[in-house]
């Protein structure tokens, strides 16, 4: 043992029982999340919604695409139609379950792709700075010049409809904002002394990016991306609503809203159902990302 008067070693009594248990970063995030009941509730809600969508083929009581001319626009609770029927007499429960599959996929997958691509560009731009940054970020600015809905409509319009194209459209629309967040976070981390300390130890750029930069950029980017899920769902619904996304008769919340809107005076509540589904899902995602942001914000 050295003779240096140490913060701890000379004082076992004061240090014997640290007031907080030593936990890792994710441990402390979970510990904060654990008491955030709103976030936990919304997280549960999202899990339920995802499970419902995943198990739609087994859960839905009827074929979502089977129409019945006799039972058009029935109210909620009409006979075996728990939530009524749409303008072609299709069961709303089944259509909402099946539509959730498409809508959730449209909400989550483009965000995942955009986070990977946009995050990578952002980290590179933020770390290297200078000309590299200028080329990447000015390119992103071009996309930023258009309102996101307009951009989505323009891209989807030129690519044509279909699930694949819709997903591509959403990914392209979501890349610039994620890239910008990643770039800001990276350039902030880049300026911190521990990056210089790593450089001073002779580490290569790749090593520094992976060992020091990414883990610090991850949480702001993840939190931001999670807020985009709801935006992506709404954008996707919007595209379907305009006829630029999924084509009928496939069930999709946006498309359902679009086709049901003519019947708004006949069955207002049934008409509102897909909108309510979009609303609940996007609010749940937003609140979860809000809770995540608070839980991941480690200062002191």
């Amino acid at each position: 043992m050295s003779v240096i008067p140490a913060d701890s070693a000379s004082l076992p009594a004061a240090q014997g029982a640290p007031a907080t248990k030593v936990r890792g970063y994710w441990g402390s995030v979970w510990n904060r999340l654990r008491y955030d009941y709103v976030t936990l509730f919304c997280l549960g809600l999202i899990i339920v919604i995802i499970l419902l969508a995943v198990f739609a083929p087994w859960l839905s009581p009827m074929d979502p695409e089977k129409s019945s001319m006799a039972n058009r626009l029935r109210p909620i609770g009409y006979k075996k139609y728990l939530l009524g029927t749409d303008e072609q007499g299709r069961d709303m429960v089944s259509r909402l379950l099946w539509g959730g599959r498409v809508s959730l996929m449209m909400g989550i997958l483009p965000v995942v792709f955009a986070t990977l691509v946009g995050g990578m560009f952002g980290v590179v731009a933020g770390y290297y700075g200078g000309k590299v940054n200028m080329v990447i970020m000015r390119t992103m600015d071009i996309f930023f010049a258009f309102p996101s809905v307009l951009l989505a409509v323009a891209i989807a319009g030129s690519l044509g409809g279909g699930i694949g194209n819709q997903m591509l459209t959403l990914t392209v629309v979501l890349i610039p904002p994620i890239c910008r967040v990643a770039e800001t976070a990276t350039s902030q981390v880049r300026a911190l002394d521990f990056v210089d300390a790593a450089r001073a130890s002779g580490a290569s750029t790749i090593s520094i990016l992976f060992s020091h930069v990414l883990i610090n950029v991850l949480s702001p980017v993840l939190v931001y991306s999670s807020t985009l899920v709801s935006i992506s769902i709404i954008l996707a619904s919007g595209l379907s609503f305009l006829g630029l996304g999924v084509s009928p008769p496939t069930a999709d919340w946006g498309l359902m809203l679009s086709t049901l809107r003519q019947s708004i005076y006949v069955q207002p509540i049934v008409t509102a159902l897909p909108g309510i589904a979009i609303l609940i899902t996007s609010i749940a995602f937003n609140l979860v990302s809000d809770g995540l942001r608070q839980a991941m914000d480690v200062k002191a």
């Binding site: 008067p5 000379s10 240090q15």
Partner: peptide, 11 residues
């Protein structure tokens, strides 16, 4: 030097 660290105000 004063050995040790200031007390933990939580405990």
């Amino acid at each position: 030097a004063i050995a040790g660290t200031p007390p933990d105000l939580r405990a």
